[in-house]
Amino acid sequence: MSKLLWIAFEASDAPAAAGFAQAVGLGFDLLQISGQPVTDIGADKVLSANLSEMPTSDGLAKAIAGVAGGYSHVGAVSSMRSKDVLARVAGLMDAAMVTDVVAAESPTRFKRPMVAGSILATVEVLSMPAVLTVRPAGFAKGDRGGSSSVESISLDATSVAKRLGASARGGARPDLTQARVIVSGGRPLKDAQTFESVIGGLADALGGAVGATRAAVDSGIAANELQVGQTGKIVAPDLYIAAGISGSTQHMAGIKDSKIIVAINKDPDAPIFEFADYGLVADLYQAIPELRAKIGK
């Protein structure tokens, strides 16, 4: 049976299934680990596990592999969590795996970036099943509508690894990988407080998320999970505003699918101007407050 099982850890991971399933020409079931079942994206059925707490990966992978037998494809949105869990699922199922799929040529041929985004590889899957993590920006947004049947399932995700504690930061701002607008800052923001007030302030005025370069994270002025780039988050907002960011290959690999890129940098020779749709050579400490004033917030 050629069919896709899409894993949604949370409800927000579900909608990307539709565009991907359409691109590979497969029907799909949705296995939703937590949250309200998403029934309007065209799944043949929704398997709702409704777990109140996310299990650690060894138990979760075992539970998913238990459901995934019989499917030709198992997919999920690319994220740190999906790579952690689904690569283990692939190991348990003795399956092929392709991470960070950005295009599908057929149900067994996929395109993905490698070497920090400097090469686009076409990967052929030689044996099924195939486990895939998918970057949604490469695929059309599927139509919403209809109503899939929902089946409650009970997952035994008992894990050996114990979670002692977790911290989630970010507060009220949208998630970077889902945000429509992102404002990102680089090393020139001199400290954490300045970063938060300048970059965070503009992000809030636009209802957007905050991102940062690796240099900004490494120097301690921005939190780890804000890092955008090949070794951080891969983002694809409608509007990406890069302030004080020179535009390393590493960083550009994470933002190149953004619809509009705006660069504000006082160095006219910064490489980011070669990629930006709109480049403003200016001091960000003057330009950003001025832009905020224009937006009127």
């Binding site: 969590r81 979670r163 977790a166 930061r169 970010g170 998630d175 990988t177 780890n224 999970e225």
Partner: peptide, 9 residues
Amino acid sequence: ETDTGDETL
């Protein structure tokens, strides 16, 4: 490190 912060296992 996690998508939203960090956790200890």
